[in-house]
Every structure is written in C-alpha cells, then in structure tokens.
Amino acid sequence: MDTNQKLPPGFSTPTELPDAQKQGEWQQHNRSWWEKNPMRYDWGGRIPAAEFSREFYQEIDARFFFDSSRYMPPQERPFDEIIPFAELRQKDVLEIGVGNGSHAQLIAPHCNSYTGIDLTGYAVQSTSKRFEAFGLNGTIRQMDAEKLDFPDASFDFIWSWGVIHHSANTGQILAEMHRVLRPGGTATIMVYYRSFLYYYITTGLFRGILQGGFLKKRSLHELVQLYTDGAIARFYTKQEWADLVQSKGFALDQLLIKGQKSEIFLLPASKFKDALMRLTPNAFSRFITNTCQQGSFLITTLRKP
C-alpha cells in the first residue's frame, strides 16, 4: 500500500463523485496508482517465484484464498457462496477488474465464455500470461469500465470484486453494466462498506487518536484513504449503495456484509497480531464481521429486470 498517496483534488467525502472537468484527472490518478501497486498480496512478504510463472500465480492464489476462506468458507471451491458456478455453464461472463487473475481462473472453466477487463496494462498482461500458463480460454482486454466497448445486452453475468469503488465515477460503471447485461442478467459486486468498527473505531479512534493519525491528516476521510488501497476508495452505507444501484435500473436481490479476520484486531501488522489471529477461531471473527455486519466488504447481487 502506498501510504504517500495524494488524493485527487475534490475527493473530500466517502462517496464523492467528480465534476465533469475532473473525471479524467481522477481516473488517471486511479490508473497510475494501480499500475504502480498491482494487487499481488505481497504486503506480508515477497512472492518467492518468478513473475508470471505458474508458481507465481499459485502463491498469489494461496494467500488470497486462505484469507477469503476465513470469512467465507468454501463448500467445494473458493467464493462458491456467492459465485453461482453451477449456473454459469451456458452464460457469457464479464469480469470487471481482473487484477492478477485469481477470480478469472476460478470462473473461466465454468462458463460459456469469459471476458475480463482491467484499467491497467499490468493486470491485462499478468492475467493473459496466467491464461497461457494454465491453458485457460477467455478474452482479456484493457478497458475503462466507465466506457465499456461492448454492444448492449452482451453478457448474462458480471463479476467484480473490490474494484468499482476505486473508479472515478462508480455510478457510471453501474450504468454501463446495466447496458451490457441481458434482461434477467445478474451482477455480483463487492464494494467497501462504511462499518462502525472499521471506519470509525479502527481508523478514527485507533489510528487517528491513539496512533496520532490526525496529526498527519485533517479529517477521518483523509485518514481512511491513507490506510486504504487505491488513489480513490469509496465507502458506502447499505442505504447509499442501494439508492445508487437502484437509480441505475437494478433490482437488489441480495446484500451481505463480510470482512477480513484482521479487521477485528485493533493492532498494526506484527507477529503478535498474526499469533492472535491464529489463536482466534474463524467462527468468532465471522460473527463480528459477517453476522454483526462490522466487516468492510459490502457484497450485493444485482439483477437487470
């Protein structure tokens, strides 16, 4: 995470949208940040394998899916609680924000056709090389999701995990998603949730007051951005998100709150924190993040009527 990041001018509230003159500037901030900081899950240690090798991707997946299994235990494969694998066989799927392709490799073998897009050249290169390394079929393209280069009604299912809240105009992406979905099509999306525990206690009280963060940043919003990935990271309440997706023509079929196990510990990263996490049952952390809805992941399934 780049803790020296500078927010784009005008991004001053948790769900701020740019005016027309600043939208391109904001998106350039976003693209530049992710080109420099691709999501490789290497903040706890470097990947001990050659970049773009099979071992490189296997290590990324092991780290990512181990973390996700603690807040969303799989039945047969990772994310099967919210990815309808059995229903995808005859469906054309679009993924927005492929990163290094962990979800792409999960989804592509189970659908009629897979298309993945990303704003950055690095992500497109990495996911394309993953498909080559593992013999996967699909199309990977560099594309701005605010301007999808697909005809109307091109897809049956859209997947996006932790991506569109980073874009310059999240609402514009939702409008584009609605356009390219077929009638009856669905989209499962994760955006960041403005939970009381993560947003106000962990960041505001612990990082802001106890750790002196408010000596560096003037507001809670700026402090949250300092500790969050991306040049822009919006945090929504459930009502804010519901209002936004419904304003773009979607029906909201399902809403879940989940969160990483690390979120329940008000401690900086350390070996001591890692030891506490190992000793704490996953069921307990899921009770806090999922059942009590104090996690930072807001997961919704949307349907185009």
Rank of each mutant, 00 (worst) to 15 (best):
M143A: 12
Q254A: 05
P78W: 11
Q225V: 04
S195K: 00
E81A: 11
M190K: 12
S69K: 14
A242G: 03
I257D: 01
T289Q: 09
C111P: 03
G99F: 13
Y122S: 09
P109M: 07
T3E: 15
L136V: 00
F206A: 03
G101E: 00
P48Y: 04
S69H: 12
P18T: 11
K91D: 00
F265V: 02
Q105P: 14
N100H: 11
F265N: 00
G295A: 09
E176D: 03
N112G: 02
V93M: 09
T13G: 10
G249R: 07
G208C: 06
I257C: 00
Y41N: 10
F157H: 13
L223H: 14
A104W: 09
G97L: 07
P281Y: 05
D229H: 11
E76V: 07
E222I: 10
E263I: 02
R234Y: 01
S262D: 02
F79P: 01
L220C: 00
E240N: 04
E132A: 06
F85Q: 03
G213H: 06
K304P: 01
F150T: 07
S154D: 14
D253Y: 08
D149F: 01
I117G: 08
Y198S: 09
E16D: 10
G208S: 05
S68A: 07
R77C: 14
T300Y: 07
D2H: 15
W33R: 05
G44W: 13
S126T: 02
M143N: 12
Q58N: 06
G184W: 04
V124R: 05
P109G: 06
R63N: 03
Q225E: 06
S262K: 02
A145Q: 08
R278D: 09
T289C: 11
P78D: 10
Y71T: 08
H165C: 00
G249F: 07
T115S: 05
Y236V: 00
Q125N: 10
A269Y: 15
I257R: 01
M39P: 06
S195C: 00
D274M: 11
T300V: 15
E76Q: 12
T202H: 01
F134G: 02
S167D: 08
P109Q: 07
S53K: 01
V180L: 08
G204I: 11
V224I: 12
Y193T: 05
M190C: 15
P268C: 11
S219R: 07
S160N: 12
E132S: 06
M1D: 08
A242T: 09
R54I: 10
I288M: 15
S113Q: 11
D274L: 08
L181R: 02
A283C: 12
W34F: 14
Y41C: 09
L106H: 01
R218H: 13
I164T: 13
T127P: 01
N112L: 00
A104M: 09
E81W: 11
T203K: 10
L106D: 04
R31A: 10
R234W: 01
K217C: 13
A275E: 13
R286W: 04
E81M: 15
L174Y: 14
R234V: 01
D19W: 13
L7P: 13
A283K: 10
D229F: 11
F79D: 02
Q239F: 04
L266W: 13
M72V: 13
L106R: 03
T280D: 01
E25D: 15
E81F: 09
N30Q: 10
T120L: 04
I158R: 00
V245K: 03
P183Q: 01
Y193V: 05
L252R: 07
G295M: 08
F134P: 03
F79E: 04
G259K: 06
W34M: 08
G259T: 07
